[in-house]
Design a binder for these strands. Structure first.
Lengths: 238, 238
DNA sequence: TGAATTCTATAGCGCTCGATACGAAAGATG
DNA sequence: CATCTTTCGTATCGAGCGCTATAGAATTCA
């Protein structure tokens, strides 16, 4: 199966070259990164690039996919591993604040910024589709918590999901504009202040009444104070 | 003073051409809009463009300045005209939701998106400087309300300002990704839920206590309804 | 060893980029 | 009218773009 290749062996490591292409596209975007930039960053010549990765667009698609399952996987992990939508998205935003400013790679998020102002419609569209798919994932996760009672029934899952996506994109742009990890973490904490409190605890406290939905309107909108979501020990920097 | 020009008169209206260049740059960004695109959009030839506006970079700078005082002036107006930082930034975000999706011009915000992935550092830097200046304006306005007691003293003005900027940038990106005005308005309203409640009203209600900071936690939060800002009758000429 | 196969490097393809040289055209001035 | 000044359209410029033809180098198979 792993039969030895027949001709001259490749003189560079394909995965390493892909990673170097990722850094270049991440830093400068699809359009602004020329094939010449790529060959310089990857340490190979143009014919080698074309032989190994197809054309520039195909290489970018492979870069995006590799990014999505490595650097970009934190969101999916948070959604899988956290108990609630609130905890998941809160963790995602906080991790984004760190990741977007981390040394060792470009700032911000490749999937958010790399195809803006791109004259190749398919490329721009491909990332847009991924972003909107993420929004749909957020929305589904939030809706699950609304239906389970973890979140109040009047929560607009679609709006809250889109808000979360907007904050994520804002974090990416701010990171590229020079914000520090601490500043972005404070933004993430502030954003989580817009979430309704976990309804489950309120329901637990009033479960004897049996009408958990109606109590909201009598109690007024919950206080906006940090309201200690136990998973955020440092009560939102804000 | 207004002495007639001596030679052959210009055959196009300079302001109209500038506006058409604005639309082109707004839609596709600085780098992606070629001089050829510009001459087509403006209805003039390349030498006319260079004679009237200098080079592409100078034209872009003029476009940005014109944008800032027309389409981009809503933020400054809100900060000037509203009573509190909260009302000002709330109005700004709601107006952005409308403006960013308004028909008749490209989506999103030129100052946010037009210089991303730009290989000319001065251009990218010029818009970054404007964005960061906006953040500083937000922060100063918020700090004023903290010092006057309109906002609780523990409010982190810097973080709240940066959060507001991040949401604004998120709104722009979401608009470009196809969100509707209603969806973006919901995002703006959701974002305002992250603000601490107006401390002044609470303080008024409990001024005998003299400890306005603590009341937040008990007072709950004001309704999130649009709260009509009367001084913006229609969505400005756009 | 020789043939087959596969990769690498040089050099250059057609094209578009931002920017301009140049002479004709159009108005003001005398 | 002639002259001067400025803008106009045409027709490019050199440079860089994405991409590739071609030939030599390096390896496996017979």
């Amino acid at each position: 199966m792993v039969t030895r290749q027949r001709g001259r062996p490749r003189s560079f490591d394909r995965l390493t070259a892909l990673e170097q292409a990722t850094m270049a596209f991440w830093e400068h975007g699809y359009e602004t990164t020329s094939v010449s930039d790529l060959t310089r960053a990857m340490g190979i010549s143009a014919p080698s690039l074309y032989a190994a990765f197809g054309d520039k667009k195909t290489l970018f698609e492979e870069v995006v996919e590799a990014y999505a399952v490595s650097y970009g996987a934190y969101g999916g992990r948070a959604l899988e591993e956290e108990r609630s939508a609130r905890e998941a998205i809160g963790r995602m935003l906080r991790e984004a604040a760190t990741l977007f400013t981390e040394p060792g790679h470009p700032r911000g998020c490749l999937m958010i910024s790399a195809a803006t102002n791109c004259s190749t419609p398919e490329v721009e569209e491909a990332l847009r589709v991924r972003r909107n798919a993420n929004l749909a994932t957020f929305e589904a996760r939030i809706r699950r918590d609304v239906e389970s009672g973890e979140l109040p029934p009047d929560v607009d899952a679609r709006a809250l999901a889109r808000f979360s996506g907007a904050v994520l994109q804002g974090l990416s742009q701010q990171a590229r504009d020079g914000a520090t990890a601490e500043e972005l973490t404070a933004v993430a904490e502030t954003a989580m202040g817009a979430w309704p409190p976990a309804a489950a605890q309120a329901a637990l406290r009033e479960e004897d009444r049996g009408t958990p939905a109606e109590v909201r309107e009598a109690s007024g909108k919950p206080p906006e104070t940090p309201a200690k979501t136990p998973e955020t020990p440092a009560g939102r920097g804000a």
